[in-house]
Design a protein around this nucleic acid. Structure first.
Lengths: 340, 340
DNA sequence: CGAAGCTCTGTGAACGTGCACAGATTCGGG
DNA sequence: CCCGAATCTGTGCACGTTCACAGAGCTTCG
């Protein structure tokens, strides 16, 4: 007995109309909570909706309204970033919260392979989202170009240097890096190095610039270990390298807490005491910072707030307001703990 | 001169048809790569597409095709899980990879607040996705009910006990917990406790059951600290509690690596040496496992493969195949390192 | 040479909504 | 009592696609 009922078709607004004995128009008014509907009709329609199990078809609605009530959240390079970087999770949650209050659905799109880029491009072009929040874009990103071309309302978290016409939210990476390096210098360290991750991103190169600002003449390129990612293993490798290059190193700026945690591990391996022998500072104030021993001095990055601000920025564009192209910069104060 | 051009309207298939001097039908055939179109027409149309900047409108396409070529990825409880649990990132990447190859767009939906539940329900009902992968659902989840009711193709990662009619992928939590506890017992520990997170989830309660299986008569409820989340801080708190309840404890099963990492910290605080004084084992084989000192003995959870399997399962349902309701169980072998 | 089969093209209908508009009913006030 | 306003309802069209179908032109073959 092959009873494969062909997946009962979904009820439409028309079915509700028939069931409740009114017209499509009236049902539509009830569904969208408009006025000018008699109590009688409303009751009958509400009952009918439940009876036939009606749910509005968003595709049809998008088509006629020319909007989807959804906002994309674009994440690049998930392998290194998604898994290792606690910030991105908080940015995401902040954005989700704000969008949720405005009744927008956030959909995260992961860009991993080449193939993803094309598919996401189609997705964005296809009208599935009304706007987009972009995290961790690099320079020369084809999707950035696409977004510009489509005129899709967008806000970036951080800003690749080639971003001109699109608004962004961020922190002052350079200034904060300078500030915390200055504090490290003030503890009396003589040979200060840096583990510098992700130099191909604005955040990475800006933090490096701030470090350099703070050291001035005392800056020594030999004491900078450039590493690819914001990750524990990058920090481990970078610090080992620095120790090898200069065993007398007594201060380190690891430009992300995950990297700093790796560096702490490398220092421990090498038998260095923190902060007695070596002072180390991080960046981000992520959950990593309180797990190292001793807890990290670091720069507090307001990840949740960044997500919220990005969401607000996109929503304001959707309301037709002019985006703030100068960028929205949030405070990122130094948090001084025991690691330096 | 208020030149606010009202966001140039998007080109439609009709514009392309006019531009290239053929009909909609022919353009549609070109766009969808069908045969029966002359070389001449094809060239003209391709040129016209570029000229007018045509991108197909997915909402319209979804409407007529009754499918969206998108799959939802549902994440519950992001606060605790998303940020702390490296597994979920890998599950997500595995799923994304497999879906990507099949040219499906994965969209992750975060469920954080009450409000999110309703909105996501609308989103799922609205035909924005053709199927869904559900991670970390709890018992009695309204979205699980909704998915059943909609008949939406779905696959769960892990399975809440009230899941009857829907397929899932997972590991044998109970068996693996039993296996690693047995190995811990075999090292000669006498007083073995457990930090038991997330007992309200199937994974949590199953791991607990396996622990109990292995200890048999020697199981002592006083040596179990139940903690809410799969997180570092849960582990820290849970282990402190266990140490207080029984200072002579010499073995611990912390049922997630993040929890184990917290427990390691608590043991360190208390001056216990690992593995000399206390042997500790975790679960997950996440990136946490190699960061503790010494590295954790743990159960390897094939997170990426779970994501891939879930994606394959949803895709097969989309092809009309019958889902495997018995569940797909992947191997999760014990990885023995130095922490016990 | 005509029928049958390909190849190619255009047309109308359908998908499920929202909205503008027109029409019907009720209500209040002069 | 009548007229205008307010309230309520139904209808047709539009949104941008795909698809079935019809038909035109060309080739092949009996």
């Amino acid at each position: 007995m092959p009873t494969d009922l062909p997946r009962r078709k979904r009820a439409t607004i028309h079915d509700v109309a028939v069931e409740s004995g009114v017209s499509r128009g009236t049902v539509s008014r009830v569904v969208n909570g408009e006025k000018y509907v008699s109590a009688e009709a409303r009751i009958a329609i509400e009952a009918a909706i439940i009876k036939v199990g009606y749910v509005p078809n968003s595709a049809a609605r998008s088509l006629v309204l020319q909007r989807s009530l959804a906002i994309g959240f674009l994440v690049h390079e998930p392998h290194s970033l998604f898994v290792e970087d606690p910030n991105i999770g908080n940015i995401l949650l902040g954005a989700n919260q704000t969008l949720s209050l405005a009744d927008y659905q956030m959909v995260s799109l992961i860009i991993d392979t080449e193939r993803d880029t094309e598919r996401v491009a189609r997705y964005l072009s296809g009208g599935f989202v009304d706007g987009v929040i972009v995290v961790s874009a690099r320079e020369n990103d084809p999707l950035t170009r696409l977004i510009e071309r489509l005129g899709l309302p967008a806000t970036f978290v951080g800003h690749p240097p080639d971003l001109r016409q699109l608004p962004f939210v961020g922190i002052n990476n350079r200034g904060s890096a300078r500030a915390i390096t200055n504090q490290l210098v003030a503890t009396g360290r003589k040979r200060i190095g840096m583990v510098a991750p992700a130099m191909d991103r604005d955040s990475g190169s800006d933090r490096m610039a701030g470090f350099r600002d703070a050291l001035g003449d005392r800056f020594d390129p030999a004491l900078v270990a450039s590493v690819p990612f914001y990750s524990f293993s990058s920090g481990l490798a970078g610090m080992r390298e620095l120790l090898q290059r200069d065993p007398l190193i007594d201060g380190v700026f690891a430009a992300a807490d995950s990297v700093a945690a790796g560096a702490v591990e490398a220092l421990r391996e090498a038998g260095r005491r923190i902060p007695e022998d070596v002072g180390i500072v991080g960046f981000d104030d992520s959950s990593w910072a309180l797990r190292t021993q001793p807890p990290l001095s670091t720069v507090h990055q307001p990840a949740t707030e960044l997500g919220e601000a990005a969401a607000r920025s996109v929503l304001s564009q959707l309301r037709g307001e002019e985006p703030n192209l100068a960028g929205i910069i949030l405070d990122s104060p130094v948090v001084w703990r025991a690691s330096a």
